[in-house]
């Protein structure tokens, strides 16, 4: 790997709080190493801003390993930036070259209000899980782990859906701000397992209803979500969840 350094121009969304109006501001950073992560580049910028007596840019992050789902930057028109299957924190500066201008915005969706600068409130996702994204089993109620053999293929497919990190990139990418990829991943994760079977109908109905209540749009199958998902969750789960929903709606006596 050849390493290099670069100077960049950044156009970043600044917004004091939820109720204020935001706008873009332009910043410059120098001598950024291609080995840095994107967030480390932001660290450099923030250190510089503080040293100049200015306010740093607020952004969400925690694990910086692509697994907690906290980081959430909309970079050059794409959630999490140019690399496929990658979170913002795992994006590295070798994706850019000297002289580039990079535009950075928060997730934009009515259901994700901006808290400050690049931070948004994703509490809606937790409330969707509260509506049914679980298996109702109290601690101490379990049978032996091997008492329920599960076909490897189903277990693997369930796992692939469960890999969702709840970052919200799918919503940010969707022109309708639909949360369908997130919701369908959870519905599928649980419906594919025998343990999840008893509640599958109510789960699908309630989670989808909550998604509407939260103000997410409906899915028109554009596929934008799948293209940007850092965990490469397949859009086929949306079809699966729709089938669950239809079945539930037809047979539910509620």
């Amino acid at each position: 790997m050849e390493h290099y350094t670069m100077n960049l121009k950044l156009k970043v969304w600044k917004q004091k709080n939820t109720s204020s109006k935001g706008s873009f501001e332009t910043f410059e950073v120098k001598d950024i190493s291609s080995e840095m992560s994107f967030l480390e580049m932001f660290d450099v910028l923030n250190e510089k801003l503080i040293n100049e007596g200015k306010e740093p840019i607020a952004f969400d992050h925690d694990c910086r390993e692509g697994i907690c789902g906290m980081c959430s930057m909309y970079i050059n028109g794409r959630p999490h930036g140019p690399w496929h299957g990658t979170t913002t924190c795992q994006l590295h500066m070798r994706a850019f070259k000297d002289g580039d201008t990079i535009v950075v915005e928060p997730w934009r969706a009515n259901a994700f209000p901006v808290i400050k600068d690049l931070m948004v409130d994703r509490g809606a996702f937790d409330r969707i899980i509260q509506a049914g994204g679980y298996i109702s089993v109290n601690t101490g109620n379990a049978v032996d782990g091997n008492a329920i053999p599960i076909e490897k293929e189903k277990a693997d497919s369930s796992f692939a859906a469960a890999a969702c990190i709840g970052c919200g990139a799918c919503v940010a990418a969707c022109k309708n701000s639909s949360a369908m990829l997130f919701v369908s991943a959870k519905i599928s994760h649980l419906a594919l397992l025998p343990q999840g079977d008893p509640e599958r109908k109510t789960r699908a109905l309630n989670m989808l209803a909550q998604m509407d209540t939260e103000g997410f749009g409906s899915c028109t199958n554009t596929g934008a979500c799948e293209a940007v998902c850092p965990k490469e969750i397949s859009i086929s789960y949306i079809a699966r969840a729709n089938a669950e929903f239809t079945l539930a709606a037809l047979t539910s006596d509620k």
Binding site: Y134, A142, G145, P149, K152, A155, D156, H189, L190
Partner: peptide
């Protein structure tokens, strides 16, 4: 041992063998 049972019951998708066991 109880932990594994509890997690399986909650739907934690642990790795499995072709026979369906953990």
């Amino acid at each position: 041992a109880n932990i594994i049972d509890q997690c399986v019951a909650q739907g934690v998708p642990f790795a499995r063998e072709y026979g369906g066991l953990l």
